[in-house]
Design a protein around this nucleic acid. Structure first.
Lengths: 211, 211
DNA sequence: ATCAATATACCGGAAAACCAGTAGAAAAAA
DNA sequence: TTTTTTCTACTGGTTTTCCGGTATATTGAT
């Protein structure tokens, strides 16, 4: 029934992880580990000539950041499925990986079942995220959306105009109000978001998804 | 074999879509459409008392924005799977939906197969995105990552410090260089990103994923 | 009708950012 | 090794932001 196995590439600098993955996958005939690399550069140069179906990519490589690896891989071989791997859990990293194009993400404590499942789904072109990863992502959303400072309509408006790079005077003209008023709004915004200048105001506003 | 059908809730203000979905799903005994709502408010108040397994949620509702609906739904019923639906394709909308917690996303030209597949996968706790949706997301990543202004290492570093709300003088102290140099870096950054102040510098830097 | 929140506006002064240039040293690329 | 890029630093001046207050009109909710 199984005519063609899925070819796997492992990119990870921990020998233990490599061996562990190989062992976990050796029992399943649907997948076959082609080879492995212990750094990003070697993996990328391999992909110049050869290819694979699915890459298991560690986030913490010695040379190239895993997050940066993803677009590099996809630029070379657009239809490789990439599954991110890491021991820990930072939601921002996972989010970046997803944005950059990984199709799956697993923590290294994933079971053989999960691993094979992820590989198969990703190879089919679907997404697969381990249950712990999903929990982490869900938590990061709810956590961030809590304790949001309440901005008034006017403040939100002024905020977006500041983000557009408009000065107090320009904003005042656009809103037909005094520059002094605009400044008050800006100051209230900064106070509410607990920052001391416009640059970080924009930063935390975006972080808190107010823009 | 099929003991329990997956209970579906449709939230969409287009009668044609509602009927279409119901017809597409009527043939499959694994899913059963419980009821539907033509606006967000009614759907939310329904969820106060009753529940469902999977919600098919239109993005363009008359009262509440679909993007905002998602967290509202998940706050009430955390383990409902939400599948976003829309006719068109704006990547930013899809991204927002995903960030807010949808488990799937389909365009309205999805086939019955895709639809049922998505429902089943989402109900299992997995993600499912239609092939067109995946293409859109992939395009948006590569498109945005192109024509990026090239920042030097030092500039990137200064950029993040600015985003942290640090002033020129503070940054100079941290980097053991003259404030005048830091200012030069800031000005070069602003020129490269084509903005005229630090606030919008941070904005476009985040937009272009340089931070 | 009343109270709280919001939007409006001001003063004066200090700090920081912004602009237009120039230019040498160090590092990286050719 | 030469060339290019990056990092560094400066002068001198203008504009804008930031801070600590204060204060009234308007709007929204109860």
């Amino acid at each position: 029934m199984q005519l063609k196995s899925i070819h796997i590439l492992i990119v990870d600098d921990h020998p233990m992880v490599i061996e562990g993955l190989k062992t976990l996958l050796s029992d399943d005939e649907r997948v076959i580990v082609k080879t492995h690399f212990i750094n990003g550069t070697d993996a990328l140069s391999y992909l110049q000539k050869d290819t694979a179906d699915v890459i298991l990519l560690d986030v913490n490589l010695p040379d190239i950041n895993g997050v940066e690896m993803v677009p590099k891989i996809l630029n070379t071989r657009a239809n490789i499925g990439i599954i991110g791997l890491s021991t820990y859990s930072e939601p921002s990293i996972i989010n970046q990986m997803i944005r950059n194009g990984v199709k799956g993400y697993l923590l290294k404590n994933a079971t053989a079942d999960e691993l094979v499942n992820a590989i198969i789904q990703v190879h089919l072109g679907n997404f697969y995220f381990g249950s712990e990863v999903q929990k982490i992502l869900a938590d990061s959303v709810t956590q961030e959306s809590s304790n949001l400072p309440k901005l008034t309509r006017r403040e939100k408006h002024v905020l977006t105009l500041i983000a557009d790079g408009k000065t107090t005077n320009i904003i005042a003209e656009e809103l037909f109000i005094s520059p002094l008023t605009v400044e008050t709004h800006r100051r209230n915004l900064m106070q509410k978001l607990e920052v001391s200048n416009a640059a970080s105001l924009i930063k935390v506003a975006i972080d808190k998804k107010l823009i």
